[in-house]
C-alpha cells in the first residue's frame, strides 16, 4: 500500500486468564494468537470473523485496554506495546473506540454534553468555552442537529442510531488518528446501519482517520472498507483488498463465510447453503496446526493438523494462510 503507515502490529498475542473453581488451575483463552496487521493513515480496514473469534480482544489489545502478552504495536512510529501512565494517556487521546452496544457505551446518568466533555476534561483540552465549542462541532459532525435539541438530553432519550452517533462523536472529539469500531452497527436496526456507516465514512475521509471496523457482516464491509482481514479462532487467515477477498476468496473458511450469507432472493428457499457443520473450536485448547482443520474438507492429513500455515501471497496485496492453497497453486 502506498499511504503513510499509522499502525503496525506484529506477532500480537493476548490470552485471557480464567480460573475454574476455587482451587482449579489457570486456563488460557488464546483469543489473539500471533496476529500481524497494518493500517495506513486514512485507511479503513475491516476485520471479519464469527463471534468468539477474538475480534473484540484484538481491538481492545491494540487500544491497550488489554496488556499484550507478546508482539509489538507500533503506532505512528512509536512502540506503544507496553507504555504506561503519561504515555498511555497520550495514546488514549490519539485513539478512539466505538463499541457495539451504543446504549451501554454511554453513562446513563450524564447528559450528552457531559458525555462529550469528559474526554476533553480528562486531557485538559481547552477552556470551558472552547470545550463547549468542540462539543457543538462534534455533534454537528455526526449530524445531531440542531445541536440544542440534543446537547442536554440523556442517552435513554435518544434512539439507538442517535446514541451511536454520540458514541462516534465522543470517539473523535480528541482528534484521534485511529478509531477502532467494534461492530458499530450490529445492535442497530437494519435500516439505520447504512446511515451510520456512511457517516463514519465521511468523517474518516474528511479527517484522514485510520479506522478498523470489526464486524461479522461481510456484506456491509464491502461498501465501507478498502481492505479486509478474515479472523478465525484467534488468528487472521486471509487478507487483502475487500473486493478481491469477496470475489476471489481463497481460504476455505472465507469461502464458507461468503456462501453462508444470503442476498435477498426468492430462490434462496429452494437451495441449501454449502456450509461446514460444527462450530468454531474452543480457544482454550485450539486445534494444532491450522485451527480450521477439523471442519475443513480440503484438510491435508499430516500437514494441516501439525504445522501452522504461513503467509502465501495470491498477489501483491492478497494473502492467505492455507496449506491447500500453498501446495496446489
Amino acid at each position: 500500500m502506498s499511504g503513510e503507515r499509522l499502525l503496525e502490529v506484529t506477532g500480537l498475542k493476548m490470552y485471557h486468564v480464567i480460573r475454574k473453581g476455587l482451587f482449579g488451575g489457570k486456563f488460557y483463552i488464546k483469543a489473539v494468537d500471533n496476529v500481524d496487521l497494518t493500517l495506513d493513515r486514512g485507511e479503513a480496514l475491516a476485520i471479519i470473523g464469527e463471534s468468539g473469534s477474538g475480534k473484540t480482544t484484538l481491538g481492545k489489545t491494540i487500544l491497550r485496554l488489554y496488556e499484550p502478552l507478546d508482539g509489538k504495536i507500533i503506532f505512528d512510529g512509536r512502540d506503544v506495546t507496553h507504555i504506561r501512565r503519561g504515555e498511555l494517556k497520550k495514546y488514549r487521546r490519539e485513539t478512539g473506540f466505538v463499541q457495539q452496544d451504543p446504549y451501554g457505551a454511554l453513562p446513563p446518568f450524564m447528559s450528552i454534553r457531559q458525555i462529550l466533555e469528559e474526554p476533553l476534561k480528562i486531557h485538559k483540552i481547552g477552556t470551558k468555552e472552547e470545550r463547549l465549542e468542540k462539543v457543538y462541532k462534534a455533534l454537528e459532525e455526526v449530524r445531531l442537529t440542531p445541536v440544542e435539541d440534543f446537547i442536554n438530553k440523556y442517552p435513554h432519550m435518544l434512539s439507538g442510531g442517535q446514541q451511536q452517533r454520540v458514541v462516534i462523536a465522543r470517539s473523535i472529539i480528541t482528534d484521534p488518528k485511529l478509531v477502532i469500531a467494534d461492530e458499530p452497527v450490529s445492535m442497530l436496526d437494519a435500516s439505520v446501519r447504512v446511515e451510520i456507516l456512511r457517516l463514519m465514512e465521511s468523517i474518516q475521509k474528511k479527517y484522514k482517520l485510520g479506522i478498523i471496523y470489526i464486524s461479522h457482516d461481510l456484506s456491509t464491509t464491502k461498501y465501507f472498507s478498502s481492505r479486509i482481514n478474515i479472523m478465525y479462532a484467534g488468528k487472521l487467515v486471509e487478507g487483502g483488498p475487500t473486493r478481491e477477498v469477496i470475489y476471489n476468496p481463497i481460504h476455505p473458511y472465507t469461502r464458507y463465510l461468503i456462501n453462508a450469507l444470503p442476498d435477498p432472493d426468492a430462490n434462496n428457499r429452494f437451495v441449501k447453503r454449502d456450509v461446514p457443520p460444527g462450530e468454531p473450536p474452543s480457544l482454550i485448547n485450539p486445534p494444532t496446526g491450522c485451527r480450521f482443520y477439523p471442519r475443513c474438507p480440503l484438510f491435508i492429513k499430516g500437514l494441516c493438523d501439525v504445522k501452522e500455515p504461513g503467509y502465501t501471497y495470491v498477489n501483491e496485496n492478497h494473502w492467505v494462510k492455507c496449506w491447500y492453497y500453498e501446495e496446489n497453486r
Binding site: 487521546r93 463499541q99 457505551a105 453513562p107 486531557h123 470517539s171
Partner: peptide, 11 residues
C-alpha cells in the same frame, strides 16, 4: 461498556 469506554479515553 461505558466504563470500558471511559478507560479508552483515558479516565
Amino acid at each position: 461498556p461505558y466504563v470500558e469506554a471511559a478507560l479508552s479515553y483515558g479516565a
